[in-house]
Every structure is written in structure tokens, then in C-alpha cells.
Amino acid sequence: MSFAVQEYKRTNRIGDQIKMEVADILTTKIRDPRIGFVTVTSVEVSDDLKHAKIFVTVQKDQDAKQAFMGLRKATGFVRAELSRRLQIRRVPEVAFLPDESTEKISHILDLLDRIEKEKR
């Protein structure tokens, strides 16, 4: 009897750790009112560990443009804070990007609802 062992890449582990730490940094350390309430949804780390894309969603009633301006301004602070918290030699360059997957899912669900209503 053999079990398939799924490989869990180091980049995925570091991405998960960065996700948790950045979420904590944004809620406890950042004081920029432009950022407001953002949610870190996922992190993609490059294979060479030099870059990390941090995907975030902004609360609907917030100005997303202002939030991302605040996040861009806080990038250096976030990276410095990550260097204190992570046990890795070199902390990746971070970039905050909008996570549009929730909007796409919502759009698909709306389309499915319309199809269902048209069938009736």
C-alpha cells in the first residue's frame, strides 16, 4: 500500500508565513488611515525567493485607489517588519496587488443565477 506524498514547496511555506505576518502587520502596526480595512487573500513568492506578490481585497465602501497608495507607501515598513519576523536570510521584495478573484466569482454566480431564472 503506497501513499502519494504531495510536495509542499518552500516558496509555498514562506508565502503562507508572509501572508500571516503581513495581515498582522497591517492590522496592528500600520496607522495610515488610507489603508483602512484590507484583507490579505494570498501571497505568491517567486521560486528564487526575491519577489512576493501580496494580493489584498479592499472593503467595498473604501476607496481602493487610496488604499493601494497607502499600501505602496508602507511597502518599505512592511518589508522591514518582515525581516524582523521571518527566519530567512533575505526577505523578498513585496508588491501589493488587488485580488480580483472574489469579484470574478461573484460575477460567475450572478450569471448562473440569471441562467437558472431564465430556465423557469
Rank of each mutant, 00 (worst) to 15 (best):
S101E: 13
D61R: 02
I108S: 05
D113I: 08
V94E: 00
V45P: 01
I14M: 05
Q59D: 14
R84G: 05
V94S: 00
F37A: 08
P33F: 11
R13C: 04
F96P: 02
F68C: 01
L86P: 07
D61E: 07
D24V: 01
F68P: 00
T39V: 06
D99M: 11
E21C: 00
R84Q: 11
R10I: 07
T39K: 04
D63I: 13
V78L: 09
T11W: 02
F3W: 08
P33L: 11
M20Q: 12
R31G: 05
V22I: 15
Q87R: 13
L112S: 10
E21I: 01
Q59L: 15
L112F: 07
Q17G: 02
M69R: 07
R72A: 11
I54R: 02
I30R: 06
A67L: 07
D113A: 14
R85Q: 10
V43E: 01
Y8S: 07
R120H: 14
V38W: 03
M1N: 12
A23E: 05
S46A: 15
S101G: 12
I35Y: 03
Q6P: 00
F37W: 11
G76I: 05
D63K: 14
S83R: 01
T75S: 13
R114M: 14
F37K: 07
E100D: 15
I14C: 03
G70S: 08
D32F: 11
S106K: 13
A67S: 14
V91M: 04
S101Q: 13
F77D: 06
R120L: 15
V40D: 00
D110V: 12
Q6V: 06
F96W: 06
H107I: 13
A95P: 02
G15W: 04
K53Q: 12
I105H: 06
I105K: 06
S83I: 01
F55P: 08
K60P: 11
V22E: 03
A52N: 01
I54H: 01
R85A: 05
R31C: 05
I35H: 03
Q59H: 11
L26W: 00
S42H: 04
Q87D: 14
L82W: 04
D61Q: 03
E81Q: 12
M20I: 06
E100L: 15
F55H: 11
F3K: 07
I25V: 10
D48V: 06
G36P: 04
L112A: 12
R79C: 02
T75N: 09
V40A: 03
Q62H: 12
N12H: 10
A67R: 02
M69N: 10
G70T: 06
M69H: 09
E81V: 00
T11F: 03
E44Y: 07
Q62L: 11
L71G: 02
V56H: 01
Y8E: 09
S2R: 06
F77V: 04
A52M: 03
A23Q: 07
K60S: 12
A95E: 09
F96M: 07
R85V: 02
S106Q: 15
F3I: 10
T27G: 04
A64M: 10
S2A: 10
Q17R: 08
M20E: 09
K65G: 10
R120E: 15
D113G: 10
E93V: 03
E44K: 14
R114W: 11
T28R: 14
K65W: 11
V43P: 04
T27C: 04
L82P: 00
R13A: 07
D47S: 11
T39M: 02
K104Q: 13
K104G: 09
Q66K: 10
